[in-house]
Each structure stands twice: as C-alpha cells, then as structure tokens.
C-alpha cells in the first residue's frame, strides 16, 4: 500500500469513529441542553438548540422538587445487592458445570440460557402475583430477587466460559501443593477468573440499575422506588417537566459511568498467559 493510501485509510477510519461517537452521544447532549433550559423555552417555536438563558439551577432544583436522594439510595441498594446475589449464585454453578461432567449438564446449561429469552415485561404479571403471595410487594427484597434472577443466566454463562478457559492442571497443581478443593479455588482459579467476574458484575449492575418495568409494577412508594421509576413523577397528566426529567436522568447516569471507568481496568485479557506451554 502506498503512503498516501495508508494516510487516507487512517483519516477515513478516524472520521468514521467520530461519526459513530457523535451518533451515540447526541441524545446525551440533547438531554444536557434540555436540562439547562428554563421551562418556558422547552416548547418555544421554533426550538433553539442552545438555551437562551442557562438554568444551571435546574440541577439543584431537581433535588428539591422530588426525593432524588431516596430514589438514588434505593437504586444503589437494589442494583448492588442484586449484583452480589446474582454473582454469588452464578459462581458455584458456573464452576461446577465447567469442571465436572455430570448427567444433564448440557441440559442444565441450555435451560439456564432459555430463561434469558423471556423478557421481564412478558412475565411481569406473574411476578406481581408471586410477590403478592409472598407478601413482598413494595419491598427491596422483591426487586433484588427479580433483578438477580434475570441476570443469573448471563452471569452463569460468562463465568462458565471463564472457568472452562482456565487449565484444570492449575488446580491439580494446587491440590498437589497441599490445597484442598476450596483453597485451590480461592487461591488459584478465582484470581484468574477476575475478568469474568468483573464482566458479570458490570452487566448485572447496569441492567439492575436501569430496570424499569418490574420496579414500576412492584413498588408504589418513594421508600422503595428506584430512580427509573421515581423520575416518571416529572411526567404529569398535562405536562412533562423535561428539564427536571433530564437533569435527574443525567444524575442517574453519572454513578454507572464512574463505576465502569473504575472497574474497566480489571478487564484485562490474557491473565493466564504463560501458565501453560
């Protein structure tokens, strides 16, 4: 390839990358700009792209007009505990299916996958009845259980894949070095499965954080409602307070982005390089 052609290729690729980034980011920019507009400007015709008077106060005001703190606390608790529960259940299941050959192993893994095919929306009535019977309506427990359950399949599969990729000889070496089964798992296998665990954590946490339909169905008071449900309070019967809705949405996004930025460094690949061969 000639030098100008290589240059051309590079420029084109960069341009494409920026284009994709722009498409992805555009809604967020729109959200931010709308969140900074005063109420009267929202329905101005013709609509302006930039606010004429910048209302940075909207971001402070929103905490006052709705119990954002409570919603945020609920979301953090529900998403966090769902993640802990899902990973705690998926880890042993994934380890066992990766290491042992037993009758019905493939069937089990397929069944786990099949559960992933049901959308929460399709099951929401059943779930509501179930929680009603259990007396768990309008509790954290209900949302934690449901969120953990819906993310179990993905967590099990990703961890299963990770455990399968770790050579069994490493565990055997640990056994011969004096470890019991659990000790070998904790000291050798689990440290090597960290990228898989991180993937499962991120996926589960984000899904639970963004979950809306089930939370809307199962909760009815600000004491238990997560942010996704809470911010719908800005959608009134006659008008939508877009500036607050978007301000609260942006507030909801920040913790997830921060978490992802922090945890992403553990997603290094090739952790097992050099162990075998």
């Amino acid at each position: 390839m000639t030098v100008p052609a290589a240059m051309m290729r590079k420029v084109l690729l960069t341009a494409c990358a920026w284009l994709v980034a722009l498409v992805v980011l555009a809604p967020y920019v729109q959200m931010l700009l709308t969140a900074l507009k005063p109420h009267e400007e929202l329905f101005a015709s013709p609509p302006g792209y930039l606010p004429e008077s910048w209302q940075f106060g909207n971001f402070l005001e929103v905490w006052r007009v709705a119990p954002i703190w409570e919603y945020l606390r609920n979301t953090v608790l529900i998403a966090g505990l769902s993640t802990v529960l899902a990973v705690a259940v998926a880890l042993p299941a994934a380890y066992y299916t990766a290491r042992r050959r037993f009758r019905g192993r493939r069937m089990f893994l397929l069944l786990v996958l099949v559960t992933q095919m049901f959308a929460p929306t399709a099951l929401v009535i059943g779930i509501h009845r179930e929680m009603l019977a259990l007396g768990l309506i309008d509790t954290y427990a209900a949302l934690i259980l449901v969120n953990a359950a819906f993310n179990l399949a993905f967590s099990t599969w990703i961890l299963h894949a990770y455990f399968s990729s770790i050579p069994v000889e490493l565990e055997e070496a640990a056994w011969l070095d004096g470890c019991g089964t659990l000790q070998a798992l904790l000291r050798v296998t689990l440290p090597l499965a960290v990228p898989g665990v991180v993937t499962a954590v991120i996926f589960t946490f984000i899904t639970a954080w963004n979950e809306f339909v089930v939370a809307l169905t199962l909760t009815s008071t600000p004491e238990t409602q997560p942010l996704t449900v809470g911010i719908t309070a800005f959608i009134g019967q006659y008008e939508v307070q877009w500036q607050y809705l978007f301000a609260a949405s942006l507030i909801a996004i920040v913790p997830v982005v921060a978490l992802f930025a922090y945890i992403e460094r553990f997603l290094v690949s090739g952790l097992t390089a050099g162990s075998v061969k």
């Binding site: 050579p167 000889e169 490493l170 055997e172 070496a173 640990a174 050798v188 090597l192 952790l271 097992t272 390089a273 050099g274 162990s275 075998v276 061969k277």
Partner: peptide, 8 residues
C-alpha cells in the same frame, strides 16, 4: 506437568 501449569 506436561504444560508446566505454573500459576500465572
């Protein structure tokens, strides 16, 4: 072990 199985 044949593949050494060093703890990576």
């Amino acid at each position: 072990f044949q593949n050494y199985a060093l703890y990576p």
